[in-house]
Design a protein around this nucleic acid. Structure first.
Lengths: 104, 104
DNA sequence: ACAATAGGCAAGCATCCACTTGCCTATCAA
DNA sequence: TTGATAGGCAAGTGGATGCTTGCCTATTGT
């Protein structure tokens, strides 16, 4: 459960800085729990993004280390689930500055 | 007033990707309408950020082109005002995906 | 066992980005 | 007018970053 009390890794902002990673989040909002290959094919077909499998894999790694997605293995499949908790924090930093800010 | 209907420039995310620029936003939340030199000195004294004036100036340019700050000249002074409107959009993209998304 | 599928690791590369340095313009005070 | 203050422009540089390529491991089906 990992209560994540307080600090938001600055990785969250860097993770969101890339348009492809934002597309991936869009994709997971629309359909959660996809595998790497599913995300690959959907990015190619729907958004005409001609990216290699490794490119997407690296993006997913960035998103995971930023806490924006969570993964679970199942046999040879690895499913990716969206994690919206870090998103709720990052903007309250400037919109509701009354709350104690321990961000970086 | 510039109703900004629809699209959020992807610059907003890139603008937020840098920790120094986030510090600047913090600084403007705390005290709006500062000049370049004020921001410089406060970043140095309060956060021990040893950055040149040009560095801050360039950061301010990025924030402005992202729509996160607005500037007004007055004599030889240039005041920087926070603009929170783009911030409200970026997170609703994934938190409230019901709204029509025209983001990039 | 063997091939196919799903994914991982690591080196290499080209581009981008933050920062510096040096010099220039504009406004104000004496 | 002269000097000081506030800010701008542009070239250069080192490090980060996104992407590719090549090869490797693990699981599944026949």
């Amino acid at each position: 459960m990992l209560a994540y009390c307080g600090v938001v890794g600055e990785d969250v902002f860097k993770a969101l800085a890339d348009p492809t990673r934002r597309r991936i989040l869009d994709e997971l909002v629309e359909r959660d729990g996809q595998t790497l290959f599913e995300i690959c094919t959907r990015l190619v077909t729907k958004h005409n993004l001609g990216l290699s499998r490794q490119a997407i894999s690296q993006h997913l790694a960035v998103l995971e280390s930023a806490g924006l997605i969570r993964t679970r293995r199942q046999g040879r499949y690895k499913f990716h689930d969206l994690e919206t908790e870090p998103l709720e924090r990052i903007v309250t930093r400037w919109l509701r500055p009354d709350t104690p800010e321990e961000n970086s």
